[in-house]
Design a protein around this nucleic acid. Structure first.
Lengths: 180, 180
DNA sequence: TGCAACATGTAATGTGTTACATGATTCA
DNA sequence: TGAATCATGTAACACATTACATGTTGCA
């Protein structure tokens, strides 16, 4: 269900083609909800058949421009207001933390250093975006909130990784016995 | 692929039945990688057929006890060492932040207050776990690292939610124009 | 003229959830 | 004896990724 509402939300900003929606996912919304063209095009066709969006024009190379309908606008706002957010989420990096004891301490430390390096790179990227120009439309302000979420989460994970490196280097970790 | 390795990792601690694996997911590993019995039982059967685990006993009520094989142990450690962590993840709550501008400011604020309430409850739960007794086996120490990850992330998200509430109450948000 | 980017679609496969289906054991 | 929990499995469906398939436009 979430992908439907992500698509409706993108088209609430302004009309776009399927390709335009795809690029928006790659650059922006994909941080929250990744989607590829193999999923986007069929879903747009279903939303059109359901009357939540309509094809409002055609561009070069067969591009189809879609516009949100009133029904689609109602649908996405009702979803936001009335459905409780889904709390379940999968995280491969966190799964690896639960399994970190399976590696030798040196390997575990190397893994955590790679994580910290990745997070430093991501943080630099996000800070570059944050330093850029920003419009003051309400949707851009909302994107700013999402960016702030990303910055805070990335800084928290980086601080965690640095603490975790200290843990796996400690005698408590290195001398710990195998599971009971 | 991740579920396979989560199962192998659980069985690396000690032999368990499918039911035991399921309970471990509900209480612990499910925070990183949720899985239900409809997925766990068939996957255990596949791992057994692939020789990565073996049935090492039988319990009451038809329970089957599975034990990790040497091949299974190799498999999960190779995965940890050699496959790069998957960075893509879906977050319904973050998706809603990107779409927050679609709500009236009062509705957006109410949404953020519900988020903050949820996070305060989660934080209290995690702090209760953290205050409990802990063994010093290496796998328990790894679970402690995962718990610390959860605590830091939850605190960061709560601080974000409180800042976001201030943002949507501000004149900048309330007077912001519709998308360009 | 050849390559990159634009643009759309379907099919096959893999992963995950929900529903269906069954039965044993423990405890109040 | 009835309910909760233990215990396993399959089937139907929904969601997501990858591969297959095709054609256009702009630019170097």
């Amino acid at each position: 269900m979430a992908l439907r509402h992500a698509l409706l939300g993108i088209l609430a900003e302004r009309p776009r083609s399927g390709w335009g929606v795809l690029k928006h996912f790659e650059s922006t919304l994909g941080y929250a909800w990744p989607a590829l063209h193999g999923q986007i095009y069929p879903e747009l066709a279903r939303l059109r058949d359901a009357g939540l969006i309509e094809q409002s024009g055609s561009g070069p190379r067969g591009a189809k421009e879609y516009t949100l309908t009133e029904a689609g606008s109602e649908e996405v706002r009702t979803w936001l207001r009335e459905t409780p957010p889904s709390r379940s989420g999968r995280s491969d990096p966190l799964l690896r933390v639960f399994l970190l004891w399976l590696l030798e301490p040196d390997e575990a430390e190397a893994h955590l250093r790679r994580e910290a390096d990745y997070l430093r790179g991501l943080l630099a990227e996000l800070e570059t975006v944050a330093a850029g120009p920003r419009e003051s439309t309400r949707n851009e302000l909302a994107y700013g909130l999402a960016l702030d979420w990303g910055l805070r989460e990335t800084r928290a994970r980086l601080a965690w990784a640095e603490a975790a490196i200290a843990t796996v280097r400690s005698p408590e970790w290195r001398d710990a016995p195998a599971p009971a």
